[in-house]
């Protein structure tokens, strides 16, 4: 019972926050051109997709198809986020492709670890996994430099707080839109300390770009 209540609570807060933010643009019904839409996204993700708010993901350099799929999943409710769920009803599906391609084409800004000592421990997990609890190495799917591929998203340079939250969400099943449930399987085997460490290291990766 308690759980259900909490969920509803979050949803209400989310809708409120989303509604407030989106208010000035609420009159924009139907698809609008990219240039008109961008300011809404830029408020949280940065004009060039390099969000400086640690909780908001950087979108720069991520695969365009991946970005579009996330927008679709926010809209259908397959991926839940109190904030994006409030924003996305304002955006017409026809705009997704242009938004995805725009942010995908932006140059990723380098990320930064908050705690360098933790990041060093995180490197071990990213490169080698955790053998005792059968956590596969992140590098196996996301590449050594975090650049990702068609099937596995880029993670290099991503904001620490965002990565921690996503891994916790995969672990709890709150985020369950990952293809083939692979990321859920990985995160379920990790504890919070390991998650924090690996997120710190992820932030330091460059994805092969300098």
């Amino acid at each position: 019972m308690r759980l259900v209540n909490r969920c509803r609570c979050l949803a209400v807060v989310g809708t409120l926050a989303g509604g407030l933010l989106a208010m000035p643009l609420a009159q924009a019904q139907g698809a609008v051109p990219l240039a008109e839409r961008l300011p809404l996204c830029a408020g949280c993700h940065g004009q060039d997709g390099n969000s400086v708010v640690p909780e908001n993901p950087k979108l720069s350099g991520l695969d365009a198809e991946y970005l579009v799929r996330q927008l679709e999943d926010f809209k259908s409710g397959k991926r839940k986020s109190p904030i994006m769920s409030g924003i996305i009803p304002m955006v017409d599906d026809k705009e997704f492709k242009a938004l995805g391609e725009y942010f995908s084409g932006q140059k990723p800004a380098p990320g930064k670890a908050v705690d360098a000592k933790l990041a060093a421990q995180g490197k071990e997990i990213f490169d080698e996994g955790i053998v005792g609890t059968a956590v596969p190495a992140c590098s196996g799917c996301h590449n050594d430099d975090g650049s990702g591929s068609e099937k596995y998203p880029r993670v290099a340079g991503q904001n620490v707080a965002y990565v921690v939250q996503q891994l916790l969400n995969f672990k709890s099943g709150e985020r369950a839109n990952d293809s083939k449930a692979l990321m859920q399987a990985v995160a379920k085997r990790m504890n919070e300390k390991e998650i924090r460490a690996v997120a710190e290291y992820v932030a330091t990766l460059t994805g092969g770009e300098q």
Binding site: V131, A137, S139, C141, K180, V186
Partner: peptide, 20 residues
């Protein structure tokens, strides 16, 4: 095989202690 590399390694040689 990318999805297998996290354990069996990129060169598929597994790990020396034989877990994989």
């Amino acid at each position: 095989f990318r999805g297998c590399r996290g354990c069996h390694k990129a060169d598929a040689a597994g790990i020396v202690d034989g877990t994989y």
